[in-house]
Design a protein around this nucleic acid. Structure first.
Lengths: 153, 153
DNA sequence: CGAATCCTTGATTGAAACGGTCGGGATTTT
DNA sequence: AAAATCCCGACCGTTTCAATCAAGGATTCG
């Protein structure tokens, strides 16, 4: 029931870009250093996010990456689907990456029925969450940090 | 975000046993044939379910498997955890199989925060579902089948 | 122009996980 | 004792994963 590290890195990188969203472009090495992600690997992932239409790039000396659309338009479910494939826990209940399973009768499979609910609940959550939400959360969590610091002083 | 085939087989086998729950024991080959699961592989899985306390076995000529406790006491989340490990999509939000992640600040990670919600929603569903529910569903789905057949005739 | 910078692309690698199989041993019934 | 059945650990081929590398192309700055 796991997300791969690749998917995790993709979302962390997007959040990093979202927090600094502007016309300006940010370099791979900057993201890699700040987010503690292996640079060559991140390179690959950002490129993948680019072909998915989530980010866009500029080459050359002042090159780097930025979001290809406003954070509100980047849906987390979409990112995960592009990077990882199905959200569903088993192929036979996936809406976007359906695979038939080997059970004797798929239409009357109890497991399928309960897993469909799991899928729906995951999909519902990730479908309504956008990068903007992630950015807001990140900012809020940072704010809590500062408040704590004040309190301690 | 996937359950392995192994986990799927485990749940299908348990459902099979649940539907025929009694003092009598059912052979591996019977389950293997009915559920279309490779026999040697199923053997391994049932053994694993036994060490997990979900089923018990009898050896020798009239040997086989049966549930080790009533279906209402077998929680799906527990089965999956035993066979597969964490329910959580990433290790750093798992309650039972926590692993720390490499992000710069776990306590203030936005991704972690949203994934925790995903985990909770999955866990909530699978924690409240028991094998008895799966069995009920299976029976209901079979009934629909019969109703359809009657209607057609 | 030339050099430095940075993204692009595809190949490659090593390790782990996955799905599945095998041989032989232990137990029980007939 | 023979036959049926579970038990146990090793094994195997393939795929996936995480990560690295090498060579190349674009862009900007001096």
């Amino acid at each position: 029931m796991k997300l791969t590290v690749r998917g995790e890195y993709a979302l962390r990188a997007l959040t990093h870009l979202g927090l600094r969203h502007s016309a300006k472009v940010i370099q791979i090495s900057a993201i890699s250093a700040a987010e503690n992600i292996p640079k060559r690997f991140l390179e690959q992932i950002l490129n993948d996010l680019r072909t998915g239409g989530f980010v866009e790039s500029r080459r050359g000396v002042a090159g780097g990456y930025r979001l290809a659309k406003p954070p509100e338009k980047i849906v987390i479910a979409g990112v995960i689907r592009h990077i990882e494939g199905a959200l569903a826990p088993i192929g036979c209940v996936s809406e976007n990456y359906y695979e038939k399973c080997n059970c004797p009768d798929e239409a009357r499979c109890a497991l399928r029925s309960i897993m469909k609910e799991v899928r729906d609940s995951i999909a519902h959550l990730l479908e309504k969450t956008t990068l903007a939400d992630l950015v807001t959360r990140a900012e809020k969590l940072k704010a809590v940090d500062l408040a704590d610091a004040d309190f301690v002083i």
